[in-house]
Measured scan of single mutants.
Amino acid sequence: VTVHVDGVEYDFDNPEEALKFAKKVAEDKNGTYEVHGNQIRVT
């Protein structure tokens, strides 16, 4: 699973970890996250 944040890609073997990371980053920057299959984009 790849999490995209501001043009940087973070790869996770564990989808739950990826989702947790995306949620935290989105909260920290008052943004949102979208899941597209095995890609998660934080905006």
Rank of each mutant, 00 (worst) to 15 (best):
V1H: 09
V1E: 02
T2M: 06
T2K: 10
T2P: 01
T2R: 10
V3R: 01
V3N: 01
V3H: 00
H4W: 14
H4T: 12
H4N: 09
V5Q: 02
V5P: 02
D6S: 06
D6P: 02
D6L: 07
G7I: 03
G7Y: 04
V8W: 09
V8T: 09
V8R: 12
V8N: 08
V8C: 13
E9W: 12
E9G: 10
E9L: 13
E9V: 15
Y10D: 01
Y10V: 05
Y10N: 03
Y10A: 02
Y10I: 06
D11T: 14
D11H: 15
D11G: 13
F12G: 01
F12N: 00
D13F: 08
D13G: 08
D13Q: 11
D13P: 12
D13E: 11
D13R: 09
N14R: 08
N14W: 05
P15E: 13
P15Y: 15
E16I: 10
E16P: 03
E17Q: 08
E17H: 05
E17N: 06
E17S: 09
A18S: 02
A18T: 00
A18R: 01
A18F: 01
L19R: 05
L19N: 03
L19F: 09
L19Q: 04
L19M: 09
L19E: 06
L19A: 04
L19I: 11
L19G: 02
K20S: 12
K20E: 13
F21G: 00
F21Q: 00
F21A: 00
A22Y: 02
A22K: 01
A22R: 02
A22T: 03
A22G: 02
K23R: 11
K23Y: 05
K23H: 06
K23A: 10
K24N: 07
K24F: 08
K24H: 08
K24E: 09
K24R: 11
K24C: 13
K24I: 07
V25N: 05
V25L: 12
V25R: 07
V25G: 03
V25Q: 11
V25H: 07
A26Y: 03
A26L: 06
A26E: 02
A26W: 03
A26I: 06
A26K: 03
E27Y: 13
E27V: 09
E27K: 14
E27D: 10
D28R: 10
D28C: 13
D28E: 14
K29Y: 15
K29E: 07
K29T: 14
N30A: 08
N30C: 14
N30G: 14
N30M: 09
N30Y: 07
G31V: 06
G31Y: 11
G31H: 05
Y33C: 08
Y33L: 11
E34D: 06
E34Q: 10
E34H: 12
E34R: 08
E34N: 07
V35S: 05
V35Q: 08
H36V: 14
G37L: 06
G37R: 05
G37P: 04
G37D: 07
G37Q: 06
N38H: 07
N38M: 06
N38C: 12
N38G: 06
N38I: 04
N38Q: 07
Q39N: 11
Q39H: 13
Q39T: 14
Q39V: 15
I40P: 00
I40C: 04
R41M: 15
R41N: 11
R41E: 08
R41W: 15
R41Y: 15
R41L: 15
R41T: 15
R41P: 02
V42Q: 01
V42D: 01
V42T: 03
V42K: 01
T43S: 12
T43A: 08
T43L: 15
